[in-house]
Simulated scan of single mutants.
Amino acid sequence: MFAVTRKHRQTIQKYKTNENSQKPPTRGEGVSMKIIVNSLDLNDAVAKVSKALPGKDVAPVLECIKFTAENDKLTLYATDKDLAIEKTIDANVIVGGQMLVPGKIFAEYIRNIADADSEVSLDTDENRLMISTGGSDCNIATLDVDDYPEVEEIGNSSYFAIVERNLKALVNNVLFSVATDDSRPMLKGVYFEGTGYTLTAVATDGYRFAMSKKPLEEKVERLTATVPSRSLNELFKLLGDGDEVLHVYIEGNYLLVTLPNTRLFTRLLAGQYIKYDNIVPREFVSTLTVNKANFERSLNTASIMSRQEKNNLVLLDIDEYNMTISSTSQYGTAKETVAVALSGKDINAAYNSRYINDCLRVINADTIKMEFAKHNGCIITIENSDEVLYFILPVKQIN
């Protein structure tokens, strides 16, 4: 909460309105707004919803943040029609209403004046927004709220319930494997499939494959959705590590995630995701276990030489007790050895070190298991767990 200054208290008495008023008026109805809000709360909310603003030239109205003030709550909303983020914060709403403000300018100004324990007064007068706090004053032109796209809503009949920290981990475990090029648009998202009490997430760029599973709090028949990576990147930033049960709603080509005081709405990728069941090999010629921390440290050290190269190539030479990791470039050669326990044939294969390191970075375990198929395709998992599974193709070596 925030304190109300003497100046603002006098303004409250002047603008006191009927607490039983219904729908907040819009600027188009000719009614001014008057709001007092904590500057840090406002800055945090603006920073979050601004992530949904378009990144390229669009209609001016889409470059705006929509503000709705009523019942001592201020709701901010931004969208590019594919992604929308809504954030609600406490505010002293003296006169409620709605306004539309250019998002990037407003965000930059609020970021510069935000300070602990300071208040921001927001007043609208016809087509201007007046911002004042301490010794700072600014006015920004507003747009007509009636021109803003309708806020999308979806039904609540199809949803899955999941603990917040589990959803965050699920996204983090696979997001790095999505494709970044436009040749296969469906691979630019993460495929989610809820069945029974399990939610599975899958991502691939054609060179590597990632799959992760987390428990659901309620049983579902079968729900599927392919969510764009950009939307998941922003969702990950909004998610915390708590035990709050979140509801994720799916309807048609849209998905809605509800968090405390925050909602993220995204358009889904249209089309059929690839059939991934046959991607992962089921027969292996070799299996090993290795200490994750030791392997990660040795891999990072050995790959220093190849990081400037296009494919970050490292060679794994593995026998019964040791894995030798080496890389070579125009700058020289680096080699590291780490202890392993291998069963099966010796392995000599090359891989993109970044692909392996991405997996190790998100795995939360002391020991990992690596399984090698006939042509050296490598599976990385946690021993005695199906929480994560990563499949990495080898790099063909040219002598």
Rank of each mutant, 00 (worst) to 15 (best):
S177A: 11
S158E: 15
V145L: 10
D386V: 09
T198V: 11
D72E: 13
P60A: 04
V245E: 12
F192C: 14
A373F: 06
F160C: 10
A341K: 14
A78V: 13
K275W: 03
E244N: 14
R27I: 03
L239S: 13
T226P: 03
D80M: 08
D205L: 05
R282L: 15
R208H: 09
E251S: 12
E70H: 14
N399Q: 11
L62D: 05
E234H: 02
E371D: 12
G344V: 01
T226G: 04
D137R: 12
L269I: 14
E164P: 05
E63R: 10
Y191E: 09
Y276D: 14
D137N: 15
L83E: 14
P54G: 12
K214A: 10
A350D: 13
N233M: 04
M1S: 13
R128K: 11
P149T: 09
R208I: 07
V202S: 02
E86P: 08
D205G: 06
T224Y: 01
L313F: 15
K34F: 15
Y15H: 08
D72L: 06
S136Q: 10
M370F: 05
A107H: 06
S50Q: 06
T17I: 13
D205E: 06
E217Y: 02
Y273W: 09
L316E: 01
A339M: 00
L235P: 07
G134R: 02
S229H: 07
E150M: 14
S353Q: 03
E19V: 11
N261W: 05
D317P: 00
T301W: 03
I398Y: 14
D90W: 00
L288Q: 00
C138G: 07
A47R: 02
D90Y: 02
M99R: 06
E193L: 09
G196E: 07
N253M: 12
T337Y: 00
R263L: 09
D241M: 15
R297T: 11
R9G: 10
L313M: 08
D123W: 08
N357K: 07
R307H: 08
N253Q: 14
S39R: 00
V93D: 09
T333W: 03
K14I: 06
I368E: 00
T262V: 15
S298Y: 00
I110A: 09
T224F: 01
Q330M: 10
